[in-house]
Amino acid sequence: MHHVGMTVTDLAAAVAFFEALGMELEGKAHMEGEFVDGVIGLDGSRSEIAMLRTPDDRYRVEFSEFQTPDAVDGSSHAPINALGLRHVAFVVDDLDDTLARIKPLGGEVVRNVETYQDMLKTCYVRGPEGMLIELCEYFS
């Protein structure tokens, strides 16, 4: 896998949230033109994108903020049992510290932080624009 792509209406907020999760900004770019339209299937598109990578450089998340055409609601606050891509999961070193860093950026635990058999502490978090993020801390 190279990356997961998400469309947002506030690129800066999405970047700040994922940087607080420990991801690193790889770069930003303006996207438009025939090549882009041909790939994504939208005529006259213009967008700003940001690519973030995990600290180990293995995985990436790409955010797109469209100027044209306008973004459409994709049920960003759908529950976990809705069809389609629902969440992205990250392993973190310290779940409590991570939650403290993302709370000021709008990160809210969906229900509980749970521990499974002294192996794993995990929770779902809603981030910017309703993104559903799973955070996992494994115990050694």
Rank of each mutant, 00 (worst) to 15 (best):
T9I: 08
I80Y: 10
D93N: 12
H77T: 00
V72I: 08
D56R: 05
Y59D: 08
D10A: 11
V72Q: 06
R46C: 00
G22D: 14
L120W: 02
V8S: 12
C123K: 03
E26I: 13
S75H: 04
G127L: 14
E62P: 14
G38V: 09
A14Q: 05
P69E: 01
P128C: 13
V4Y: 13
E19H: 04
V39D: 07
S75F: 01
E24P: 01
L105N: 10
T9N: 11
G74V: 04
D73K: 00
M23L: 15
L25F: 11
K121G: 06
A29R: 15
E65V: 02
N81K: 05
H3W: 15
V61C: 03
T9Y: 01
P79N: 04
T54F: 04
F35R: 14
E108R: 12
G127E: 14
L21I: 14
Y124N: 10
R46G: 00
V91Q: 05
G106M: 13
T7S: 07
I80M: 11
V36C: 05
H2E: 15
A50H: 05
L83W: 07
H77S: 00
L85F: 13
V8T: 15
L21F: 15
R46M: 01
L83K: 07
D118V: 01
M23E: 02
D37K: 04
L52V: 11
H30Q: 09
A12L: 03
L99E: 04
S45C: 12
M31N: 13
Y59C: 07
L95K: 06
R111G: 11
Y116L: 12
G74P: 00
S64I: 13
G74M: 02
Y59K: 02
G41T: 01
S140W: 00
G44M: 01
Y59H: 10
D37Q: 08
F17H: 08
E137F: 05
V4D: 10
I102K: 03
E62C: 14
D37F: 06
T115F: 01
A89L: 02
G106T: 12
A78E: 06
A14F: 10
K103C: 03
H87G: 04
C136G: 04
L120F: 05
V8L: 10
R126C: 09
D43E: 09
A29K: 09
V92S: 12
L132N: 07
A89V: 01
S45F: 08
M131P: 08
V15Q: 13
V125S: 14
R111S: 15
C123E: 03
D118K: 06
H3G: 15
E34V: 11
G107Y: 11
F18R: 02
E48Y: 02
D93I: 01
D37P: 07
T9A: 09
S76G: 06
I133F: 11
E48M: 02
F35A: 14
V15P: 12
A14W: 06
E32N: 07
D43N: 04
A14N: 09
G5H: 11
D118W: 02
G22A: 03
V109T: 07
Q67E: 10
